[in-house]
């Protein structure tokens, strides 16, 4: 079985990708970094799209925001995704605006009300986009409220919105250290049938009990172990390697993509 492993597309190495067309199963882009970015961005994305499948991973939908859902943005997003024929759209189970944008991912309070509120907004987004929305379990450094557990919160949103999960194994690892829980138990408890996509990345150890989800370092061996465990528990799903800071040359990243691929092949 051929396991699909993609790489986050960055402008830092975009021209290398166009020049050398390396063997990568798919690329992932953040629509917010490509929308309204001018003719050159569209031109480059067209060239990528001619040669590769592309997934999208949103940053600013702010699905859990106390502000009203920005439906005009969601409609622009649909035009963008249609224009580049991108079917997979994922976002963070998080929010980044409250009385205006703050441009960073904040933890939604883990309450039943909040979960239901988010689920209703996810349905609305799916209706406008005419695509499924995959929600990513996010990393967080302190919970805003724990009326229910993080796990129960995620499960409730997925069920009520009837949507899929983007399982970010690095985020599970980061959270397990930051909030002192067992990452294997956490992954085992997630609903297999909803896991259709995965993310893996590196993090930064700020203190022994505080990891920061920087996407700025190589993937740690503990996180590879979690990915292997997730495959065992839930079966195969495409995985994407994210790297957003301290970006090494493309050939170095491609070696890491191979390492991710080896995790799934070892289990096959």
């Amino acid at each position: 079985m051929r396991h699909s492993v993609g790489l986050g597309l960055r402008r830092e190495f975009l021209s290398d990708v166009l020049a050398s067309t390396p063997a990568v199963d798919f690329w992932e882009i953040a629509p917010e970094n490509w929308m309204a970015r001018g003719y050159e961005a569209e031109y480059q994305l067209d060239r990528i799209r001619e040669r590769y499948p592309v997934s999208s991973h949103g940053l600013s939908l702010s699905i859990g925001s106390p502000d009203p859902l920005d439906e005009s943005f969601v409609r622009q997003l649909k035009i963008f995704l249609d224009r580049f024929n991108i079917s997979r759209y994922s976002e963070h189970l998080s929010y980044c605006s409250a009385n205006g944008h703050l441009y960073d991912l904040l933890p939604i309070p883990f309450t039943e009300h909040a979960a239901d509120y988010v689920a209703a907004r996810v349905k609305r987004v799916q209706d406008i986009l005419e695509r499924p929305v995959l929600l990513e379990n996010v990393s967080y450094y302190v919970p805003a409220k724990t009326e229910i557990t993080e796990l129960a919160f995620i499960q409730r949103v997925l069920e009520h919105a009837d949507c899929q999960l983007l399982l970010d194994v690095n985020n599970v690892y980061v959270n397990s250290v930051n909030h002192n829980y067992d990452p294997f138990d956490f992954i085992a408890a997630l609903p297999s049938q909803r896991i259709t996509y995965g993310h893996i990345a590196g993090h930064f150890e700020e203190a022994s009990d505080l990891l920061i989800d920087t996407h700025g370092a190589d993937v740690r061996s503990e996180v590879y172990e979690l990915l292997a465990f997730a495959y065992q528990q839930h079966g195969d799903f495409p995985v994407l390697l994210e790297r957003d800071f301290n970006i090494p040359p493309l050939n170095v990243l491609l070696k890491e993509v191979e390492k991710v691929k080896a995790v799934s092949q070892a289990l096959a």
């Binding site: 929010y95 409250a98 009385n99 703050l102 904040l106 309450t111 909040a114």
Partner: peptide, 24 residues
């Protein structure tokens, strides 16, 4: 207004003005 949204607004107020607003 739901309780969880009040919490979020408090977070945002504090993040915008950590020296002036009271933290969550």
């Amino acid at each position: 207004m739901d309780d969880f949204r009040e919490i979020q607004k408090q977070w945002a107020l504090w993040l915008r003005n950590p020296d002036g607003a009271s933290p969550p």
